[in-house]
């Protein structure tokens, strides 16, 4: 990359003459020049808030079959209309967001911790173990996520847990690989050698030196993976292989919408717009986080 191109991609924070601006200052500075970043943070805040507060802000019971109009367009009572059996789509969308966030948090949490552990083992362990693990990672990554998910559903049946398991297993290799590369690079770094010479144990080196160095990129990556997780959950639920009705999930709403697509477009619109907003929100937020915490990472995007 030439100097000109490098200058173009350099963040404001990096250009500042001040040595080591505080995290808050860096955050504000990066965000002030980054409209999409602000949009991302706002969208994510709204989505997370609505997921947490879902039981209190849904105007109706999302599973209640009402005697009112069926497949009605949006009205003052039903903001996104009603579905084929008269349920309030807006309430179902909000409740579906709670499920989506739950899956994302559980699956990414599991994948992050397992990926971290396996990556450290691969990076610090003996060579043969590393090779075997790489092979298994490559094999897991060669499955299409949905096809692998369907195979797992055949084995253990469809449920919320199955979705979480599928997403976790298919994401572990990605995180583990990054941790492994970082660990290997750090293993021979001079400050680690110095630490070892001073008699530091493995545990101290891992906790104090390796972990902080790998955690940042990992969390940024996880934030950008949220949309993928949510699309997988919605997709499997759409096929009837994920979250089971009557639990409202965006995928279940979309499936109802698909079955009655010739009667009303509103379930499809209601089920899909939040997926698109979540994707935009977490992608923008991830990009902004990357700029704030690690300008060097910008190139890999």
């Amino acid at each position: 990359m030439t100097d000109a191109a490098q200058n173009a991609t350099r963040t404001r924070a990096e250009d500042s003459p001040l040595p080591e601006p505080t995290l808050l200052a860096r955050t504000l500075r990066t965000l002030s020049g980054n409209r999409t970043g602000v949009i991302g943070f706002v969208l994510v805040a709204l989505i997370v808030a609505s997921a947490v507060l879902a039981p209190w802000i849904t105007p109706y019971d999302p599973a209640a079959i009402m005697t009112g109009p069926r497949m009605s367009p949006p009205t003052a009572e039903h903001w996104l209309g009603t579905d084929n059996i008269g349920r309030d789509i807006f309430s179902r969308v909000i409740a579906g967001g709670r499920i989506a966030m739950l899956v994302a948090a559980a699956a990414l949490g599991a994948a992050l911790s397992a990926g971290l552990a396996l990556g450290l083992i691969a990076g610090l362990g003996p060579r043969w173990l590393d090779n075997i693990m790489l092979l298994v990672f490559d094999a897991l990554r060669s499955f299409p996520v949905i096809v692998f998910g369907l195979a797992v559903v055949t084995i253990i049946g469809p449920s919320l847990f199955t979705v979480i398991l599928v997403v976790a297993i298919t994401s572990i290799p990605i995180y583990a690989r990054i941790v492994r590369t970082q660990t290997m690079a750090l293993r021979n770094a001079e400050f680690i050698l110095a630490e070892r010479a001073m008699g530091a144990g493995m545990a101290r080196i891992l906790l104090v030196h390796v972990l902080p160095n790998v955690l940042g990129p990992l969390l940024i990556l996880a934030s950008m993976d949220v949309p993928l997780v949510i699309a997988t959950e919605a997709g499997l639920s759409f096929l009837g292989m994920g979250v089971r009705p009557p639990t409202p999930s965006w995928g279940v709403i979309l499936n109802d919408g698909y079955n009655f697509i010739r009667n009303s477009p509103w379930p499809v619109i209601g089920g899909s717009v939040p997926i698109i907003l979540v994707t935009l929100g977490f992608t923008f937020m991830g990009e902004a986080l990357r700029d704030i915490f690690d300008p060097k990472l910008r190139k890999t995007g």
Partner: peptide, 15 residues
């Protein structure tokens, strides 16, 4: 376009 999963895109295409 990247923000729209293929199956959502397919539903809109049908619609």
């Amino acid at each position: 376009t990247i923000s729209i999963p293929a199956f959502v895109m397919a539903l809109y295409a049908v619609l």
